[in-house]
Amino acid sequence: MVKRVVVGAHYGLKDWLAQRMTAVIMALYTVVFAVSLLAQRPAGYDGWRAFMSQGWLRFASFLFVVALLYHAWIGVRDIFMDYIKPTAVRLALHVVVIVLLVGYAGWAVQVLWRL
């Protein structure tokens, strides 16, 4: 194996791996969620609320939200890296995205926690 000298900020590999791990978490959640939805077929508000209130699902949904937060951040940052060349504009957009994503995550977690 060739021993390479890696230059740069060194966050590339970590983020590359994180992008994939969060993807696997969300993909598994999607399948499990779809299967339990089909198996339980909750009807009406009470059914839907009882369905989402299940302890294991709230646990899993919370993990999904955190995974989504990180996954979306890496994805959107990569898009900005490709298309937004002026550093100041890109940096400003990065801050906007982080603020939005953290806020969204808090909002979603609040919906789950209230159950």
């Binding site: 839907w48 609320r49 979306a72 959107v76 939005l100 969204y104 919906v111 209230r114 159950l115």
Partner: peptide, 23 residues
Amino acid sequence: SGAGLFLMLPLLIHLFDLSLASA
């Protein structure tokens, strides 16, 4: 599709919120 999902997150969370907050 990733960009679209990100941009529409507020709508999705809002709908999720509405569906669970109260009857």
